[in-house]
Simulated assay, not measured.
Amino acid sequence: MDHQTPHPVEQPGRRGPAHQHAGHAHAAHGRPGGGNGWRTAVRATLHCLTGCAVGEVLGMVVGTAAGLDNAATIALSVALAFVFGYAFTMRGVLGAGLPVRRALKIALAADTVSIAAMEIIDNAVMVAVPGALHAGLADVLFWGSLTFSLAVAFVLTVPVNRWLISHGRGHAVVHA
Rank of each mutant, 00 (worst) to 15 (best):
I121A: 02
A153G: 08
R14Q: 10
F142E: 02
G95H: 05
V9Y: 07
A132M: 09
V100F: 15
G92S: 01
G34K: 01
A107Q: 06
P17S: 14
S114V: 11
A27V: 14
I165H: 02
V113Q: 06
A66Y: 09
G37C: 10
A153P: 04
A128G: 09
S149V: 03
A109V: 07
Q20F: 10
H19Q: 12
S114L: 08
M90W: 07
L68H: 13
G97V: 10
D139F: 08
A28W: 11
W163N: 08
I106W: 04
V113S: 02
V62S: 05
V158A: 08
V174G: 05
L137S: 03
A72W: 14
L108G: 11
V158G: 00
S77E: 03
L94F: 10
V155H: 02
A27E: 14
V42Q: 07
V78Y: 05
N70L: 10
A75F: 01
A132C: 10
D69S: 09
L76D: 01
V125A: 07
I115Q: 04
L49I: 02
F154L: 03
F82E: 00
R101H: 09
A124M: 14
M126S: 02
A79I: 13
G92M: 03
T157E: 05
G13M: 01
A65Q: 11
F148W: 02
L80P: 04
V61C: 11
G13A: 03
S149W: 00
V155M: 05
A138R: 14
I115V: 13
R102E: 15
T50H: 02
V152F: 01
V113K: 00
G168H: 05
V155C: 07
A109W: 06
I106K: 00
L133Q: 07
A79P: 06
R91G: 14
F88S: 08
A124G: 14
M90S: 06
V140R: 13
Q11K: 15
G92V: 01
G23V: 12
T89N: 15
G33Q: 05
H26W: 14
S114G: 15
A117T: 15
S149P: 01
I74W: 04
A176S: 13
A81G: 14
L150Y: 01
D139I: 05
F82Y: 12
I106R: 01
V100W: 14
V100C: 07
V54G: 06
V113E: 00
M90Q: 08
V140W: 12
A109F: 08
V42R: 03
K105Q: 13
L98C: 01
N36V: 04
N70A: 15
V173R: 05
V173Q: 03
F154G: 00
C52D: 06
M90L: 15
S149A: 15
R102D: 13
R15S: 13
I115P: 03
N161E: 15
R31N: 08
R14C: 08
A87H: 09
D69E: 13
A72P: 02
V42P: 00
I165S: 02
T40S: 15
G168D: 06
D139C: 06
M118V: 02
R102T: 14
D111Y: 00
Q11F: 13
R169E: 07
F88R: 03
V113D: 03
A65K: 09
L133I: 04
V62A: 11
G16P: 00
S114P: 09
A71H: 11
A172P: 12
V54P: 05
V54Y: 06
T89H: 10
R102V: 13
A176N: 08
G144R: 13
